[in-house]
Simulated scan of single mutants.
Amino acid sequence: MNSFPLKRIVDLSLACLVAVVVLLPFCLVALSVKLTSPGPVLYWSDRVGRHNRIFRMPKFRSMRIGTPAVATHLLADPASFLTPIGSFLRRSSLDELPQLWSILVGDMSFVGPRPALYNQDDLIALRTERGVHELLPGLTGWAQVNGRDELPIPEKVEFDVAYLQRQSVRLDLRILWLTVLKVVRREGVTH
């Protein structure tokens, strides 16, 4: 069953609704980023999308200018690279708000595997081998609600495969609800 058109309609409708709801917080976060550290408000990261196509994904900038473009856990001292409000943005997941743009333009979905950094070769290779690269990446996903940053890559890919095999509107709604709970409880975030 191909639910891609239905999923896209749900994504667009939900993204428009969420954009209206978060407009004020979006503006406040943008202003806070600008006032607390030099550099642009948004950080555009090269990410791997559906069919391993590279796309540019925006986030509110939580790291200082000049931070190496690697997964946070690969930095020797990640906290030293954070902006004054970077830790708060990450713990609250407010840094993710600009990804609504990626959902609106069709690079991402609300639910799917989190998009890998362009240089995470091990994660990209495993996902390709297991067919996960066929999915549109998501703002949240099955791996995120089952461990998020704490999961080793092979385990993360197993959750991605489980989502690939079981994807449905019902599962997406469950993942979205679990994501809200995780964000409110600030679970599974390393920085």
Rank of each mutant, 00 (worst) to 15 (best):
R91W: 06
F55D: 14
K59S: 11
P68I: 11
F60S: 11
D46C: 08
S32H: 00
I9S: 14
S87A: 12
L12R: 01
P84L: 12
R90H: 03
G112F: 05
M108W: 07
G66V: 07
P68R: 10
P78V: 13
A30D: 00
S62Y: 04
G86M: 08
G106H: 07
R50D: 02
F110I: 10
L74A: 13
G49T: 12
F55V: 10
L12A: 12
C27I: 14
F60R: 10
L97V: 14
L104I: 15
L100M: 07
L75P: 06
P5C: 07
A76M: 07
L89N: 10
I65M: 14
G39F: 09
R8C: 09
L100S: 09
L74V: 10
I9H: 04
S109R: 01
Y43A: 13
F81T: 13
S109H: 00
A79Y: 03
V29W: 01
R8Q: 09
D107A: 04
M63W: 03
D107G: 06
R50Y: 01
S80Y: 07
S45Y: 01
R61I: 09
F55I: 06
P84I: 10
K59D: 09
S45E: 12
Y43D: 08
F26I: 00
K7F: 07
L35K: 08
V48L: 02
F88W: 15
S102L: 08
M63Q: 08
P84F: 13
C16E: 03
G86F: 11
P68A: 03
F88C: 07
P84S: 11
P5K: 04
R8D: 02
L104S: 06
S80W: 04
V41I: 15
V10N: 02
F55R: 12
S62E: 03
P98L: 13
D11Q: 06
G39V: 10
P38D: 11
S13A: 14
F55L: 05
P98Y: 06
S109W: 05
K34N: 02
L97I: 15
L97S: 05
K34Y: 14
I85C: 05
L104E: 09
W44P: 02
A71T: 11
L100R: 02
L94N: 04
G106Y: 02
W101D: 13
I54R: 12
P84V: 11
K34W: 13
V33N: 00
G106R: 03
R56C: 12
D77Q: 15
